[in-house]
Amino acid sequence: MEEFLKHSLFGLSGLLGVVCAVLVVTRKNPIYSALFLIVLLGTIAIDFFLLQAEFLGFMQLLVYAGAIMVLFLFVIMLINPRGDSLPDEGGATDRWVAFGVALLIFSLLFTAIAKSPRLKEFDSFPGMAAVPETVMGTPARTADHGSLTAFGYEMFTTHLFVFELTSILVLSAIVGAVHLSLRPRRRKREETEAALDSSHGREEHAHV
């Protein structure tokens, strides 16, 4: 019964995801694309839960659907493009070229997946290995949050370096975004400085 539920949930979410993906890339108005993308992200979160990656599923919902997509929606609302301010989506040729490339990539991936003999060995997700009783002296299976302790332990030991790198990346992204959005204010300040210069004369400015 539980297996059947799993299979049908996976099938439904997969189907919904596929449909949403197609809608994301085909809608003319970005607000629709964004909404369908949110649905799509939700289906992927379901898949993560099914794959017993509960932590990641929550992250997917919180970060992606909760933060990134809200950002997207904010921007769309700020810009509020509609009608003639929406870019004209070009001729059929461009679309066909894009479609051709996408189709080629898909067919390549499809063939690779279909033909791979090794994939069959793990195809049906055999039961997971036992979660260790304790990690660093702490009981690892205290509650029903899967293998989160082991996951965290893994992340802050084996993959610590990657983790730090990512934090630096995010930091620089924050600085970059702040810098980009601060630009107009700085220009204003320069203008006032220029005005001061012309009124007070050059020497006084040099003295300052």
Binding site: A21, D47, L51
Partner: peptide
């Protein structure tokens, strides 16, 4: 619910993304 079907969905979503980026 199997690895291959997960990968098929993944491949499809990826290709759709490629189309969206290029087209």
């Amino acid at each position: 619910f199997s690895l291959t079907s997960c990968l098929y969905i993944s491949a499809f979503l990826f290709s759709t993304g490629v189309y969206g980026v290029l087209g």
